[in-house]
């Protein structure tokens, strides 16, 4: 059932004698496979958006879906994002679970009215009688030298809206399981795919999803916690690797769910390391880093050794490709942030 051209290869691994089903694939393949299996599992799911049908999406995430499931289940819409999201509301009211795609992050803006005023509120307005099972896939964040409005980080905007949940996977394994999970839930989920990571391969344990909710410690350490999501997780892991050469042991926390934020997981890690640096691509002011810092303050004030540091994009429009490496937190800027929390002295 999984197409040969997906280049997925099953690796034989036998820890503790248990048969495991681990496949190496790219995030694009993982997402494609998650959609394939979701459409297979639930006949009330629909995939639609701009160019997702015959073309398979501009990032090929929906490749082969229309051929397999037909143009009722997987279809191209006219080129209008408000229409796509507004239609999802009506489909939900008629009992369908929509998995629409907004082609690029910046294209979600024309649909904000439907996302905020309708998708986020219909369950509430109808007193729980009309749930909004809508999994909105949004290729997100920067890093691919794309035109304007193709590199935005909208997580704080979505997380601020009552009635929406927000998640961003960092690896193919996360992408595969989080998308399947989100597409099985009755509430609307904004699924932010780190487009710069689409082609990076990783191991996906098909049988073992692991914990689907909350955050995940992806590297243990004791001197400071790096909090990140989406594409910034792998960058923070790189930083942790470099810092380890200098004897600095950094913990990396993949926040995963940006709403709800796993406050307990966050507090557990920072209580241990007593220092935190939150890293995100979005502009700093009122970014999600502020919420993360506030949660850490509420829960870890007594144990904190330094104010929470934010290493983020700047309060500027997302710059053109030539400058995006200056804008997105790079290894040096993250290291400077770590240095600030490590060297901080009271009074």
């Amino acid at each position: 059932m999984y197409k040969d051209n997906q280049e997925g290869t099953t690796m034989e691994m036998e820890p503790a004698g248990a048969a495991v089903n681990v496949v190496e694939m790219s995030m694009q393949q993982a997402l494609n496979r998650a959609l394939m299996e979701t459409l297979e599992r639930d006949p009330k799911t629909l995939v639609f958006g701009e160019d997702v049908g015959r073309l398979g999406g501009v990032f090929r995430i929906t490749d082969g879906l229309q051929a397999k499931f037909g143009s009722d289940r997987v279809f191209d819409t006219p080129l209008a994002e408000s229409g796509i999201l507004g239609m999802s509301v009506g489909l939900a009211m008629a009992g369908w679970h929509s998995i629409p795609e907004v082609q690029f992050d910046g294209f979600a803006y024309p649909a904000i009215n439907q996302i905020v005023c309708q998708i986020g509120r219909m369950n509430y307005r109808s007193r729980g009688i009309m749930p909004m099972p809508i999994t909105l896939r949004v290729p997100s964040f920067g890093g691919i030298r794309a035109p304007e409005h193709h590199g935005e980080s909208l997580e704080a905007l979505f997380a601020h809206v009552p009635g929406l949940k927000v998640v961003s996977p960092s690896t193919p394994h996360e992408a595969y399981h989080q998308l399947k999970y989100a597409a099985s839930r009755p509430d609307p989920v904004i699924f932010m795919e780190p487009k710069s990571r689409y082609w990076q391969k990783g191991e996906v344990d098909l049988d073992n999803a692991g914990e689907r909710t909350g955050s995940a410690v992806v590297r243990e350490g004791k001197h400071a916690t790096l909090v990140a999501w989406g594409a910034m997780v792998s960058r923070c892991l790189q930083v942790a690797e470099l810092a380890a050469e200098d004897g600095i042991e950094l913990e990396v926390l993949d926040l995963r769910w940006l709403k709800p934020i796993d406050a307990e997981g966050l507090a557990a890690s920072v209580s241990k390391t007593r220092r935190a640096v939150v890293v995100h691509e979005a502009p700093r002011t009122s970014g999600l880093g502020a919420e993360v810092a506030a949660i850490i303050n509420e829960r870890c004030f007594r144990t904190l050794r330094a104010p929470v540091e934010r290493v983020t994009g700047f309060d500027v429009p997302y710059p053109s490709g030539d400058l995006e490496d200056e804008y997105i937190p790079n290894i040096d800027r993250i290291l400077f942030g770590i240095q600030r929390v490590l060297e901080y002295r009271r009074g």
Partner: peptide, 29 residues
Amino acid sequence: PAETRLAPIQAVVAGSVLHAVGWAHGARL
């Protein structure tokens, strides 16, 4: 709304018109 077949009162001008299109498309499917 499910029993009466009347969607909740909509305060956004033109807000629910697309919902009708989605509902109708779902009915067609």
